[in-house]
Simulated assay, not measured.
Amino acid sequence: MMPDEIIKDIKQLVSLPDVVLRANQLIDSPEADASAIGEVIGHDPALSAQLLKLVNSAFYNFPGQIETVSRAITLVGLNELRSLIFASKATQTFQQLAPEKIDMDVFWLRSVYCGIVAKKLASVLLEENGEAMFLTGLLHNIGTLILFSRLPEQAQLIVDQADQSGRSLAEVEKEVLGFDSAQLGSTLLESWRLPKKLWEPVRFQYHPEITATYQTETEILKLARQITDCVEPELKTGQPLELKKLQATAVNGVEPTTEQLEMIVTDANLESFDVLAIINPKATMIF
């Protein structure tokens, strides 16, 4: 099976709630405003509550309490709002897939961590708020869930071969399947009509140099993934961050300093559990 066929096969399992689809359409509409989008989101009380928890968390650290969705939209902006909506529904949307051989609590902690690091890299290195990067980082590895859910025997074979040979999972995936999990995940995101700026970095996260349009964003995602692999927050070992493991990775021609990386990691360590507690509260009980 090819990525398009696999995604078509699982679309019913990972379909988005109507409120998310409608809000996504409005965000892309030049005529929509915060009030109209807030009204749509208000039809889903659970989503509204999660959004308000997120904007009032350490993730944003606003000085005052944000009490309405429309006010939250005004403060964070429409593109950031899209990230928060999809983040709020992510664990619920993929719950139906939940492969037996993947610890979903660990999966979401790593995903949240990668998203926060990606957002902060954009802020530090590009001096922008990285509107799309949190969502890109959060969803960068959903192809693995799809792969283990739909092709579990091949997925396990790939893991075993990668472990035995020392090669990357992506390399073995392409050898065995003809595509990798990054392509699989990005195909799903594209089918959801998310902007290309969100799904293209996911598709080319292992090779930013061949990205058609969004090379800078793809470089950020690659570095965020490498930092997450170094830190391994789910292990909570208390060991110092091994920055030496990082490959030299430049973003838009600029390599982050050790001080910048340490600051990003420190902030992500503090914020990741707060965000996880909102989008997947059951997971935080085991850490």
Rank of each mutant, 00 (worst) to 15 (best):
E128N: 13
L184H: 03
V76E: 02
T93C: 08
L169F: 06
A90K: 07
V265M: 00
S186K: 02
N252L: 10
F134L: 05
K53C: 13
S70L: 01
P195A: 11
A277F: 09
W108M: 05
A132S: 15
I7V: 10
F134R: 10
R82H: 00
H207T: 15
F59T: 11
I210Y: 11
Q164F: 02
S191L: 08
Q156E: 10
E67I: 04
R82M: 09
A58G: 14
L184A: 04
L126S: 08
E67K: 00
F179A: 05
A283M: 08
A34Q: 02
E190M: 14
A23M: 06
I116F: 08
A122M: 00
P17C: 09
F94R: 03
E232I: 05
A46N: 13
K196Q: 12
P63V: 07
I85W: 09
P45H: 14
R82A: 03
I158V: 12
K8D: 11
S83C: 02
F107H: 01
C114F: 04
V172F: 09
P208Q: 01
V254M: 15
V55N: 06
A118I: 12
G166T: 06
R22N: 14
L270N: 11
K244V: 14
Q154H: 11
D18K: 12
S57A: 14
M133K: 14
H140G: 07
S123W: 07
D105H: 09
P30W: 00
A277E: 05
I286S: 15
Q92D: 03
R193Q: 11
I264V: 14
A46E: 10
Q164C: 06
A72P: 01
T68W: 06
V76M: 03
P3F: 07
G178E: 08
Q161L: 13
T68L: 12
S83H: 06
D274M: 12
R225C: 14
G253W: 01
S168V: 08
V76I: 05
E80V: 05
M104C: 02
E131Y: 11
G77V: 07
L198T: 08
L109F: 09
T216G: 01
L81E: 10
S48E: 10
Q247A: 14
M133L: 13
K89M: 13
L177I: 11
I210T: 14
D33Q: 08
Y60V: 04
L235C: 03
H207K: 15
E175S: 13
S168E: 04
S48W: 00
E31G: 09
N252P: 02
W199H: 03
M133D: 10
T284H: 03
N141F: 09
I278R: 01
S48K: 05
A49N: 09
G64S: 15
N24L: 08
F179V: 04
I279Q: 07
E171L: 13
L52H: 07
S70R: 05
E5H: 05
G185D: 12
I227F: 05
I264T: 02
A46W: 04
T258N: 12
A23G: 00
C230H: 06
A87Q: 03
P99R: 10
K120L: 12
S83W: 06
S29M: 09
